[in-house]
Nucleic acid binder design. Structure first.
Length: 1025
RNA sequence: GCGAGAGUGGCGGAAUUGGCAGACGCGCUGGACUUAGGAUCCAGUGCCGCAAGGCGUGCAGGUUCAAAUCCUGUCUCUCGCACCA
């Protein structure tokens, strides 16, 4: 079969037919010339003589050089070692036909579920970053299959999303059309890379049969409330209804239930993006601009669907512990959840004369669940600094602002509020250094000492965190300190830092209120609490506050409830109906679509153009869709759609049972395959997707639909692949080049020549122009100029994007896979290098020629490959290769595994006899990495079936050891000699051998030996006086 | 500012976790193959030095017979977060 393929490319040309040039190309060393004629199948090779030394002749056939732009040909070439373009499609077809990677419904024996983060099928096709993680998981899966495990390795597409929507708006065609086209392209590219997915399980979040179950899970969320006491989600029917609510009738009960569901509607200050015509989640807004497109975002109150993820905050944080994720990702999640403990404290804001009565009243009634009208409630993590609270600040959006503002201050406060509202988040955070605010004119009373404290409005306090109000302790909080400095407010120190421990801490200044100290210390100026340490004080005062009804222990999270609705037309519709009153207006009561009536399909729209109002585009849907009639009753459909995250929250479950029409996943299969054993993807999903998916999973777990509390047991983040290294120098306006050593940034952040102050610009330098001097890279024609080399993110605008199609065309999929794994550690950020690709392509050539007879007319085994016993040295190479590669695979260290294979090939190409068993072991070791060439070689070694399920080679520890080893001998710190000893030499033997070594003996003669350290198998060290 | 990670040849990166620093690959130098080289093969390649030898894992100390690895301090870079009370 392969022979046929090869023969196509072989034609005899008459002996003596001299090669000719068709053109006179001036081919110097073209840097950046990536063209590889060996894989261009438009020329052919013949076997001219059969003599190894005689070069092969190429039949001349002009082909257009894609970069040099003129016809050019090789006049002589070695025979192309192998043709990836022939082999790879052949084996891809083989696997597909035979369904080699079809996964059983249920695992036999040990199971392994390996998941890739499924891609968004963009119109640009696959990026080289995708195959990085996908190759890694593919290697793990192929390796696991050879170890006899049942492997679930699926692929799908996260296909709802804005680009398809934008395309629809541009072209006024349904987004499904472009989405399906993009999916087809992605599939083609993924298959071209030879990944061993079970394609039978392919899914897209946009499939009606898929989002039907996304909607179904939404209904589960809708049907669940969080029982804080039990610490789990329960059916809404089990929600206790307070009697006073029950008395008010059914509608009141339903509203009460709606308030407690995990999916609820709430008036939220949302991020409305006029340019995109939609509301965005906090996570999708970066610096006050939309993450996608960078459009300005404004804050508006709107009624939106929310998911009560905050109810699960504690569990989401605590369960991180049991996961095999990198510490940095865990920490990212943990910070995002942002749990903090402290206390809530009420400051009395009624008339001063009423304070004692209020205090006494509180003593009796205790701390109310909801803050009264006459108090300002604050949250603090440092209740121990309560005595130092010299003023209070409320957020500009705080509901009490108006009440607390006195007549005199009214105008100033109103102006300030208006200004704060107009400010984008970006502006608010940009000027972090400069605090702004305005006095309300009112005072509150500090509950611990009865002192009046002024209440200010300032935008450094956020309405969305804690209670939207703070007690300010300028002596012990840097932000409060800055604010107090700005407005000349009182500073009272209540924490003594103690004797100076490090530099930069002036205890006297702290105690005098001239410096801020935000760490732990000992209490002062705190009445009865003086002398307590911060920790003791915290515990004591929290207890005392609770006793006197003035405060209570409290926990707060940075995490907010998840804004779950979008005003888009390319997303999952909500399976929710609004009840209508007599006038045909929604009456505020909701009805869930009956699960049997799912899916709620997307309606056909005639017109995709946005109207710029924060009203969902699905309001333009046909009447029949918008106003369904059920049981004789007319309803309004919910016209918001779910965010793109929805579909990716549970796709790993659907892969287990993708065709099930009766339920979202069969419980038996779910128990058999879950959890995901290895999940690989980019770090950009460290918080959002991974947090959302865990949240949904926990709800499903609470409701008994899944068997594990966490979905992803092990998570690995692949590093980013940067573009090819670029060289830059600096040039002045007059065109002169300046050495990097003279360039710096001036006060305005501009690049200037530091000597003269002239502005300079960074310019790219062609790699040709760069040469190496002994110390630095320099510009070839001017050794005085240093060049910086740097790699950048791939981007269209920079023009450094590498296209996987091109690499596969030039070097083959195996080379691409191998290169991406060889670049460096999976998790590291690393730059692309075309030369590196050529390097691994060369390795594949060599591996091929190690086994296959390259000179033969048809494919045949190399004559060096024989059925014979390996020599002991060969055995050592074979068995250490197996040992090392196996270990590296277990640790996902693919780069070193490939290095070991290269060593194997380097060794065996020099051997004139290559035992067949060695070659077979090698091919099996290579198979997970470069499966196409491995299958082809396996076939040429005489096997008819795929190697995908061949047992993984085993090594014999005995055979990995060589008989003699070389051991360094040190005198002092220096290695002075190396001795060759039997591998099992004892300490005594080693020392003796070292002493008798000529060189060592000479050095040791006449010196006092203080101590001799011998590490058997490692070294001998003589310590001398 | 806070947090995390990383600094090793000309470059990407190795180093069994304290035991010969620089595996493997790229690049470069020289050679072979009766012209040519972007094929292939061979040799060399951390730096200085003709050599003997010396110096070398950002920098400065420390522990140890022995440090890229452990400790202290410090500098630089990358990535997150960024008024979260």
């Amino acid at each position: 079969m392969a022979g046929d393929a090869l023969r196509l490319h072989q034609q005899r040309i008459p002996t003596g037919d001299r090669p000719r040039r068709l053109a006179e190309p001036v081919l110097g060393r073209q840097s950046g010339n990536t063209y590889n004629p060996r894989l261009n199948c438009r020329y052919s090779v013949i076997n001219a003589s059969g003599c190894r030394r005689t070069p092969y002749r190429v039949r001349l056939e002009a082909h257009h050089h894609p970069q040099l732009g003129f016809p050019w040909c090789n006049t002589r070439s070695s025979m192309p070692a192998y043709h990836p373009a022939q082999i790879e499609p052949k084996w891809q077809a083989f696997w597909e036909q035979r369904q080699t990677f079809r996964t059983p419904e249920l695992p036999h024996g040990e199971k392994l579920y390996v998941l890739d983060m499924f891609p968004y099928p963009s119109g640009d096709g696959l990026h080289v970053g995708h195959p990085e993680g996908y190759t890694a998981t593919d290697i793990v899966c192929r390796y696991a299959r050879m170890q006899g495990k049942s492997v679930l390795h699926p692929m799908g597409f996260d296909a709802f999303g804005l680009p398809a929507e934008e395309h629809a708006i541009r072209t006024n065609t349904p987004p499904r059309v472009s989405t399906e086209r993009n999916i087809a392209n992605f599939c083609r590219q993924l298959k071209m890379l030879g990944f061993s997915y079970d394609w039978q399980r392919q899914l897209a979040t946009t499939d009606v049969a898929y989002f039907r179950w996304t909607q179904w899970i939404f209904l589960v969320l809708f049907d669940t409330w969080y029982d804080a006491q039990a610490g789990r989600g329960r059916p809404i029917a089990e929600l206790p209804i307070p009697p006073e609510v029950a008395q008010q009738g059914l509608a009141a009960v339903r509203l009460f239930q709606d308030e407690h569901r995990l999916a609820y509607q709430g008036e939220a200050l949302v991020n409305w993006c006029p340019a995109l015509g939609t509301v965005l989640a906090n996570e999708e807004v970066v610096d006050g601009k939309s993450e996608r497109g960078g459009h300005l975002v404004e804050r508006r109150p709107l009624r939106q669907w929310m998911l009560r993820i905050t109810a699960y905050a504690d569990r989401l944080e605590q369960d991180l512990e049991q996961l095999n994720w990198s510490d940095s990702i865990k920490k990212l999640q943990s910070d995002w959840i942002g749990r903090s403990t402290g206390a809530e404290v009420d400051f009395f804001i009624g008339p001063t004369s009423g304070f004692p009565a209020w205090q006494a009243q509180r003593q009796v009634s205790g701390f109310p669940r909801r803050a009264d009208e006459d108090v300002l409630r604050v949250y603090t993590t440092r209740p121990d600094t309560l005595f130092g609270a010299t003023y209070m600040v409320i957020a500009p959006e705080h509901p009490f602002v108006e009440r607390l503002t006195t007549k005199q201050q009214k105008e100033a406060v109103q102006q300030y509020r208006a200004k704060a509202a107009a400010k984008s988040d970006r502006e608010r955070t940009d000027l972090v250094k400069e605090k702004t605010g305005v006095f309300t004119g009112s005072y509150a009373i500090n509950p611990v000492n009865g002192q009046p404290v002024p209440i200010w409005v300032a935008d450094y306090v956020l309405i969305s965190y804690g209670t939207g109000a703070i007690m300010a302790v300028p002596a012990h909080d840097t932000r409060d300190f800055e604010f107090a400095r700005q407005f000349d407010l009182k500073v009272i120190a209540v924490v003594d830092p103690g004797p100076p421990r490090g530099e930069g801490l002036d205890r006297e200044a702290v105690l005098a209120g001239e410096s801020c100290f935000a760490e732990l210390g000992t209490a002062v100026n705190s009445g009865p609490y003086d002398g307590l340490t911060t920790a003791e004080f915290k515990a004591r005062i929290t207890h005392d506050l609770a006793e006197t009804g003035l405060g209570r222990e409290a926990v707060n999270y940075k995490l907010r409830d998840w804004l779950f609705s979008r005003q888009r037309f390319w997303g999952e519709p909500f399976p929710i109906l609004h009840e209508l009153d007599e006038q045909g207006q929604p009456n505020g009561l909701l009805r869930a679509v009956d699960p049997q009536d799912l899916p709620v399909n997307l309606p056909h729209l005639d017109d995709y153009q946005p109207h710029g109002r924060p009203e969902p585009p699905l309001m333009k849907a046909p009447e029949a869709w918008l106003y369904p009639v059920i049981d004789g009753q007319r309803y309004l459909r919910e016209t918001n759609t779910m965010p793109q995250w929805a579909g990716s929250c549970w796709y790993y479950l659907r892969f287990i049972d993708p065709a099930n029409e009766a339920c979202f996943v069969d419980p038996v299969k779910e128990r058999a395959w879950m959890p995901v054993d290895l999940y690989v993807g980019g770090a950009e999903h460290a918080v959002l997707h991974l947090l959302y998916a865990r949240f949904w999973h926990k709800v499903l777990y609470d409701r008994g639909y899944v068997s594990t509390s966490e979905p992803f047991r092990r998570l690995v983040n692949q590093g980013m692949i940067l573009g090819e290294m670029e060289y830059t120098g600096y040039r002045t306006g007059t065109g002169n080049w300046v050495g990097a050593q003279h360039v710096g940034k001036n006060a305005d952040g501009l690049l200037v020549d530091k000597r003269r102050g002239d502005p300079v610009t960074e310019e790219s330098v062609s790699a040709d122009a760069v040469v190496r001097s002994s110390e630095t890279l320099v510009l070839a024609d001017d050794p005085a100029i240093r060049i910086d080399s740097r790699a950048f993110k791939m981007s269209k605008s920079r023009g450094n994007v590498v296209n996987p199609d091109q690499i596969v065309h030039d070097y083959g999929a195996d080379a691409l896979r191998l290169y991406e794994m060889f670049m460096g550690p999976l998790e590291a950020t690393k730059p692309w290098s075309m030369d590196g690709v050529r390097g691994v392509a060369k390795f594949l050539d060599r591996a091929w020629r190690m086994i296959v007879e390259e000179r033969a007319e048809s494919l045949a085994l190399s004559t060096a490959v024989r059925d014979c016993e390996p020599t002991s040295e060969q055995n050592r190479v074979i068995h250490t290769a197996i040992k090392d590669i196996t270990r590296d695979l277990d640790h996902l260290q693919f780069n070193t595994a490939i290095a070991r294979m290269m060593e194997f090939v380097n060794f065996f190409t020099k051997e004139s006899t290559r035992p067949r068993v060695a070659m077979e072991s090698f091919v099996l070791l290579l198979a997970p990495f470069a499966p196409h060439i491995a299958e082809e070689l396996w076939q040429s070694l005489g096997h008819s079936d795929t190697l995908a399920y061949e047992p993984w080679p085993v090594f014999n520890e005995e055979l990995t050891r060589s008989q003699t080893i070389e051991v360094p001998v040190q005198v002092g710190k220096k290695v002075r000699a190396k001795i060759t000893v039997p591998a099992n030499a004892t300490s005594e033997q080693l020392e003796a051998a070292a002493r008798t070594n000529e060189k060592i003996a000479a050095i040791l003669a006449g010196v006092d030996i203080e101590k001799v350290i011998v590490v058997p198998g490692r070294l001998v060290n003589f310590q001398v006086k």
